[in-house]
Design a protein around this nucleic acid. Structure first.
Lengths: 219, 219
DNA sequence: GCGAGGCTGACACCAAGCTGACGCGGCGCA
DNA sequence: TGCGCCGCGTCAGCTTGGTGTCAGCCTCGC
């Protein structure tokens, strides 16, 4: 697996690099965000390990711009910031996992394995459902052959349905999936996102069960 | 299902143990983390219920080390800590669900069921009753293979019968189940809903006991 | 055959759900 | 720094279908 390590602390960086390498992965180690951008542009990585506090900028911004450019590579954040707000910000920005320094190298290995497993199960299993071709790994959908762009929230919602096909999901359950504990939403957000999903994917993909919730429509 | 309960409070522990046992699971109850480690090493469990505040250490660390060793058993955390930071820490550490004390034992059962379902090979246990296939988790019913849609009230009513198979339920009891104390219904609502259920599921699923109430029909 | 209890078709009401519109805030770009 | 775009949460007005109510009929037990 090709891993990009972005970390300016030389001692920690070396330790992490050695650990990853001894797990049998190949590592590129950079210490600045501009180097990281260049590396990502020139090479594809299967996983990015990102330190949040770097000399040339906040890692969060880097992650956000990565995601906004459509890059879906798994990202694990490493940082000394143990404030809840930072964690939430990191996960909201699109990180896949979070490690608070100091951490155990064995734990790092475990997280890498788990994130990688989540992504590389089998290269790109394409689901077809109700006239849709869904590539979970690439996060892309085609409807009648034409690509459809989903936003982050829309993906999260749709994934919730895909991961429990046929099962009824209440709005409360869905809210829990979309909003990790913080940020209580008091309005009809779920309804709105369902509506937007239906507009993009077709009205039949999600069925309403009045007073109970929603479920994936029939294939 | 084999469940390991890690809880040092004897009163709560006993209550939880009894609840789980009455749900038909087998429980091992330990009060210390070293006992827990030993139990896990020697026995495999399908689910771990973990109290975070224990005499010999923080449960979070225990959970993290469990995960770093590659153990992926579902873990539900129970704790009095209701800070957001604790929840996030718990979930980041690899917990599957979270219960804040004090919690309702019924809620515990529900969480156990949901977490277990998420993991078990065949996700939803299907009951069959009188030619019906009933998937409680998905809230779906098939009659002679054909899906049947129930409304919220109809589900509530049907569930009341399913949870007490064979037991006679008076209209007053059923009203109590469907309407939480307030909202006095003065008419024949229950009769109407029973009628609607019979129309959807078949006349025989619910039997009338004149002057007494209703009960589930024979399978 | 009578009465009480149960059944069910019909209907109106209103809460649940839908969706177009709007505004805020974050990000990229000039 | 300012501008514009985009994602997303919120809201309001509208639509829809679930549900309570009732009336008239049916059934059971005596």
């Amino acid at each position: 697996m090709r891993i990009l390590l972005i970390e300016d602390d030389t001692i920690l960086g070396a330790a992490v690099r050695d650990q990853i390498a001894s797990d049998g992965h190949s590592v590129d180690w950079v210490t600045r965000l501009d180097e990281a951008s260049a590396a990502i542009r020139s090479t594809g990585y299967d996983l990015v390990l990102l330190d949040l506090m770097l000399p040339d900028g906040r890692g969060i911004g880097f992650l956000k711009s990565l995601r906004s450019r459509g890059d879906v590579s798994p990202v694990i954040i490493m940082t000394a910031l143990d404030q809840v707000s930072d964690r939430i910000e990191g996960l909201n920005a699109g990180a896949d996992d979070y490690l608070v320094k100091p951490f155990d190298l064995a734990e790092l290995s475990a997280r890498i394995g788990s994130v990688a497993r989540r992504y590389s199960g089998n290269p790109n299993p394409i689901l077809t459902h109700a006239g849709l071709e869904i590539d979970l790994a690439a996060r892309s959908i085609r409807r009648d052959g034409k690509p459809v762009q989903l936003t982050a929230r829309e993906w999260a919602l749709f994934e919730a349905f895909l991961s429990r096909p046929g099962q009824l999901l209440s709005k409360a359950q869905l809210e829990e999936k979309l909003y990790a504990f913080d940020a209580e939403v008091e309005s009809n957000t779920i309804e709105v996102h369902v509506s937007r999903l239906r507009k993009k994917l077709g009205a039949h993909v999600i069925e309403t069960e009045r007073g109970l919730g929603y479920r994936l429509g029939k294939p």
